[in-house]
């Protein structure tokens, strides 16, 4: 069964009576365990698509099935609950809480998981920080970290609730190439252990770390193909040294 099924999905923004269509009847499926890049220039609608898939926004028309459930009719709070349990986000600008420790930043999603309050939180946090190789910075404050370290903490935060899907919106956009590679390596490792990863990027190079690429232009999917010569972040990392 497909993890994500999107059919005829459209999105039109309306500001002060002016309608701006952003997505036009998009249809595709994503299976569990995929690593997919959504690619396209700015204005192509890739970020809007990611926001709808990540349940941060609702489509104007069409259906979106997550694990077989049509979630377009869900209330805000129901959507928040699903984001908490099934979805992890990594943003271009990290979005860590300022003046807050690495540990507490990672803990954030657990605070809102009301079904498992206080259950093995410390273990989950330690595990997530180990997965991004940040165990040695547990008690640092977020503003004491470098950009690459910040993004790794953000990934740990996305991981901590063991979500089905990890959405990464231009995760390397604010990083130098070395830190960017480290981030891509972590995303590939997460995919290797079974997480579905959806990456949004405008760089072909970054996109080629995925297994499949959706190309978007003007709110439509123009191509959907598997990556033939996939880049493995580990190898490239070696080359760069």
């Amino acid at each position: 069964m497909s993890l994500i099924v999107v059919q005829n999905l459209s999105k039109t923004y309306e500001t002060e009576g002016v309608k701006t269509p952003v997505l036009h009847e998009v249809t595709f499926e994503i299976k569990k365990g995929e690593f997919i890049s959504i690619m396209g220039p700015s204005g192509s609608g890739k970020s809007t698509l990611m926001q709808i898939l990540g349940m941060l926004d609702r489509p104007t028309e069409g259906t979106y099935l997550l694990e077989g459930k049509n979630i377009t009719q869900y209330s805000d709070d129901e959507m928040a609950k699903i984001r908490n349990k099934k979805i992890g986000f990594v943003f271009q600008s990290f979005n860590l809480l300022p003046r807050t420790s690495v540990y507490e930043n990672t803990e954030l999603p657990l605070l809102y998981d009301e079904d498992h309050l206080e259950m093995n939180n410390e273990k989950k946090i330690t595990k997530a920080l180990a997965a991004v190789d940040m165990s040695h910075r547990t008690n640092y404050l977020s503003n004491q970290l470098s950009g690459g370290e910040k993004q790794r903490v953000a990934i740990a935060r996305a991981l901590v609730n063991n979500p089905e899907v990890i959405f990464a919106d231009e995760p390397t956009g604010n990083l130098d190439s070395k830190s960017g590679l480290a981030v891509m390596r972590i995303l590939q490792q997460l995919n290797d252990v079974g997480h579905t990863v959806i990456l949004v990027t405008h760089e072909t190079y970054t996109a080629r770390h995925a297994k499949r690429i959706l190309n978007m232009l003007d709110g439509r999917i123009v191509s959907d193909e598997l990556v033939k010569d996939r880049l493995i972040a580990d190898g490239e990392g070696e080359l760069l040294k």
């Binding site: 990540g54 941060l56 805000d76 709070d77 928040a80 609950k81 984001r83 908490n84 349990k85 986000f89 979005n95 809480l97 954030l108 999603p109 809102y112 998981d113 935060r157 609730n161």
Partner: peptide, 9 residues
Amino acid sequence: LRKAVGARA
């Protein structure tokens, strides 16, 4: 961010 990671209203 809090809402994105699951905070309800």
